[in-house]
Design a protein around this nucleic acid. Sequence first.
DNA 1: CCTTTTAGTAAATCAACTTTACTATCGGGA
DNA 2: TCCCGATAGTAAAGTTGATTTACTAAAAGG
Lengths: 150, 150
Amino acid sequence: MSTSSRWPPPPPLIGALLRVPAHAILRRIIRELNAAGFDELRLPHMAVLQFPGPDGVRPGALAERAGISKQAMNQLLQSLETAGYIERSAAREDGRTRVVRFTRRGRGAYSKISDILHDIEREWAAELGARQFADLKALLTRVWQSPLAW
Amino acid sequence: MSTSSRWPPPPPLIGALLRVPAHAILRRIIRELNAAGFDELRLPHMAVLQFPGPDGVRPGALAERAGISKQAMNQLLQSLETAGYIERSAAREDGRTRVVRFTRRGRGAYSKISDILHDIEREWAAELGARQFADLKALLTRVWQSPLAW
DNA sequence: CCTTTTAGTAAATCAACTTTACTATCGGGA
DNA sequence: TCCCGATAGTAAAGTTGATTTACTAAAAGG
């Protein structure tokens, strides 16, 4: 045998089954955002823009839910602020904290993401059938609600 | 209204439903690999080690399937070679090409990953029920086989 | 042969993230 | 009231990862 590759290949495990389409979705979001005029947005920015969005949230909370350090989040927020997607205003009650707010442009980008995701949902539903797609989402939602996903 | 957050929150879309558990799995793999003595392995190395593994594959092919440049893949391969996980041997027929091979240590790491993934599959099956978990995998496999995932 | 294409690599540059360190504010006691 | 520890945020340096640019060697095809 000329190589050690096995045949037939083993079926993909759950890790790959989730990872591959998740990455495909991310790449498509970036691509379509850039094409729609939001062309400063890069993959790392998705850590900020991801569900349920940064509007009205503190920087530290964003860092925690994205799983990165506060400092890394701060750099992302700075670049997003420079590019005009968000602004950070001093909080009302606690002088230490600040609050992230969408600008008009930021809200536009976020709603574009939402549009893309809804497009993707429609495509998947067309591919699998509406019923089966709903089943898929229901199962993933059960995982989401369990400790397994975190 | 003190913030613009909406209530109740919208249900997660398919993007988040895939992304969150996929990231959780990746983080767990890194954590358990490091704990098992494979402590040089970092998240970027997973681009090499991911299904179906680099054994007997050319560097360029690995780059393509990981979605990164050949040069970036080359740096990953170099660090994996230095750490003793793989080796690159000159190919038999074509003098330009090389072939990546697991070392014993590399094979150990790869089979550890496989163990972890099978553990995760068992946990998910326990959470959802074996039947429903099988349905989930079947649906994701249909997506995998369609152009949607790529 | 000679040219073009392909595979791989290397170095420089660029981007992202972590580590370390600092300021400002809050809150809870002596 | 005044410390003093803890918390939120930020900033700068250092590290790591990835892209860009550029090169060598082998193959393919006239």
